[in-house]
Design a protein around this nucleic acid. Structure first.
Length: 271
DNA sequence: ACGTCTACCTGTCGGC
DNA sequence: TGCCGACAGGTAGACG
């Protein structure tokens, strides 16, 4: 579920409350995608020193070590001031001296992993192969053009892979390709410099707009404060198969690439 | 190095 | 109403 915008909205929603908080007890629910990697009791007394993000991973920096959190497809974090009993889909409770950080994740594709440092092999495995942050100055157009030229993949799976640029999932890949006028099945190396530049700009614009709108809420994402996102109301193609393109009126098409649905306008987006 | 498939798990929705 | 399959925002690993 959550792509970069939803993760960033979550980060912004939690950071102020959590930085400076001291962990008291950590309670685990059903198993998540990966094991925590330490005895939960070991975390008692640690202080949260910062809340960062790398791609779709949240990084809870502690005065000793780091908790790496991924929301998977259906995860969301909540900040509770008043304690309540964890529900059947709450699988990680981090009780602090200020409130409770709770991970709700019905499908359990998410994960919370403790690492002693970001140089830890486990951290390197999770974060080491990631591409550049699209909203940072490191996302330069020259490197982007080179990466597209050197790739032999179709552009959509290349975006989803996170090897060149991180944080772009199925919704925002479809939307960025629409804005750039590129069909999802187009080979990356066959995209000329004009459209490649447009795609570079579109990725940044669509992600930044989505962050401003609080992310996308398709079924169950909500911010830490429980607010739904609004980006889905602005989607041009995602989830709109058969509906008229908002630009030209041609029916939006859906095709499968791998196991993922791609939505596009056959007239506005050329191969 | 690429695509394709499978798996992980639960909930929801459409069709019959 | 109820059952059954398809599908969902992600990622990793196996295989050809």
């Amino acid at each position: 579920m959550p792509e970069l915008p939803e993760v960033e909205v979550t980060r912004r929603g939690i950071a102020a409350a959590l930085v400076g908080a001291q962990l008291r007890t950590v309670v685990l629910g059903k198993p998540l995608r990966w094991p925590l990697g330490c005895d939960p009791a070991q975390l008692a007394g640690r202080m949260v020193t910062g809340v960062g993000r790398r791609g779709k991973y949240l990084l809870f920096h502690l005065d000793q070590g780091c908790l790496i959190v991924h929301l998977g497809m259906s995860g969301s974090l909540r900040w509770l001031v008043q304690p309540t009993e964890p529900g059947p889909h709450d699988h990680f409770d981090c009780r602090t001296d200020r409130g409770i950080l709770r991970l709700h994740d019905p499908r359990r594709f998410g994960a919370v992993v403790y690492v002693a440092s970001l140089h830890d092999p486990v951290a390197c495995k999770l974060l080491g192969g990631l591409g550049v942050e699209p909203l940072s100055d490191d996302f330069r157009v020259e490197g982007w053009l080179l990466a597209l030229r050197q790739s032999r993949q179709a552009i959509k799976p290349l975006l989803l892979s996170g090897r060149v640029v991180v944080g772009v999932g199925n919704i925002y890949a479809c939307e960025a390709l629409f804005r750039a006028g590129i069909r999802p099945s187009t080979l990356a190396s066959r995209i000329g410099p004009v459209r490649a530049r447009r795609l570079h700009a579109a990725i940044r614009e669509v992600l930044a707009q989505a962050v401003e709108l609080g992310g996308s809420t398709l079924r169950d994402f909500s911010s830490v404060q429980g607010h739904a996102g609004a980006f889905q109301l602005h989607a041009q193609v995602y989830g709109r198969e058969g509906l008229p393109c908002r630009v030209c009126g041609t029916p939006v098409r859906m095709e499968r690439q791998g196991q993922r649905s791609s939505f596009f306008c056959p007239r506005c987006q050329r191969p």
